[in-house]
């Protein structure tokens, strides 16, 4: 069986859905960050696959920008978790429930 471009797009879609569902179901902020990473990297696969299919470099170039953005997001996210952990021992999303209405 030949692996065509559609397989990569399918892989990307499945990864994206796993990330999205994981983010909605898991309660640990760190795991939620991982899910966001999974979603972004799923899109990267799409970009590369589509760029190859279209024979166009801009799809591949987009991946670099996305990687930078993903790194920046992790920096901010981890900083937030550290700041929260300094103030209290456990950091799960359920513990954070001051705000509701």
């Amino acid at each position: 069986m030949e692996v065509t471009n559609d397989w990569y797009l399918l892989l990307s879609a499945v990864m994206f859905v796993i990330g999205a569902v994981g983010l909605m179901l898991r309660r640990n902020p760190l795991v939620m960050f991982m899910c966001v990473e999974l979603m972004l990297n799923a899109v990267n696969i799409s970009f590369v696959a589509l760029g190859t299919e279209l024979n166009d470099v801009s799809g591949q170039i987009a991946v670099f920008f996305v990687l930078v953005v993903a790194a920046v997001e992790v920096v901010v996210g981890l900083a937030l978790v550290v700041a929260i952990n300094r103030r209290r021992a456990a950091a799960t999303a359920d513990d954070m429930s001051v705000l509701r209405g």
Binding site: F33, V76, G77, A93, M96, V98
Partner: peptide, 14 residues
């Protein structure tokens, strides 16, 4: 403030 930041961050990244 921290809680709002984390919530905004996770949903924003999503």
């Amino acid at each position: 403030s921290l809680e709002a930041g984390l919530k905004y961050f996770i949903l924003g990244a999503f």
